[in-house]
Write a protein that binds this DNA or RNA. Structure first.
Lengths: 118, 118
DNA sequence: CTTGACCTTAAACCTAGGTCGAAGGTTTAT
DNA sequence: ATAAACCTTCGACCTAGGTTTAAGGTCAAG
């Protein structure tokens, strides 16, 4: 599978795929005689994992760590669970902060709309 | 008031204050004979407004717009309210997304901790 | 009179997560 | 045979919101 096909299969851009490889997140694939990258089908799953991880708020550094500590193909379970718990805690506080901000904004709107309507 | 005093009074760094001025968010102050910036006391309130705005999730571009449309000193009320409503809507969807992510993470943790505990 | 704390500027650097372009090689279709 | 659509690398660029550094001017105290 060439990089363009992989890109289409995952919905990522080819440059993103190269970027992940350059930064040690996606393992470098075999090369064809002409120098083209030749991906195994499993690359799709890895990229989907990365993309989902990003959507869940993991940084690329975290994803690299998760993917590199795996014995074979899958990231080590214990490390994943640790990472997930940390992320959960982060999200909890993030949500709280956002809710507090919303309350502040609502309050500000109320102040501005109620008093001294010039 | 020199920039260092203003920085101390607001808790911001002097470089941040210069940065805001350079980017058209904080109006440039008078200069003393020696070239030092000389701030009026009102600069404190403006910087606090900016800092709070940042904490509420406004970008500097939004804050610049809000501060520049003001007739005299205070940002125009209508623009502020519009901005606040947009921010509120953004925050609502942001909070929803974060909550959905948390649910996904919790589910993932459950999957990983329950099945095939190698 | 000199030391140290303060101020000035412009430009370079930083993180994160990429995108874009140049310059060139390859493959496929017509 | 030639054009379109791939692929390669490398380095520059982008956003956002700043910090750091270099090179220098100023001010108050001892």
């Amino acid at each position: 599978m060439r990089i363009g096909e992989l890109a289409k299969a995952t919905g990522l851009s080819a440059s993103r795929v190269r970027f992940y490889e350059k930064h040690g997140i996606l393992p470098p694939p075999e090369r064809r005689a002409n120098g083209y990258r030749d991906y195994p089908a499993s690359a799709i799953a890895i990229l989907q994992f990365i993309d989902q991880g990003q959507a869940l708020g993991f940084t690329l550094a975290e994803l690299r760590a998760a993917l590199s500590t795996g014995d074979e193909q899958m990231p080590a379970r214990a490390d994943m669970i640790d990472g997930l718990r940390r992320k959960q805690a982060e999200l909890e506080s993030h949500i709280e902060t956002a809710i507090a901000r919303r309350a502040q904004i609502i309050e500000l709107i109320a102040e501005l709309t109620s008093c001294e309507p010039s």
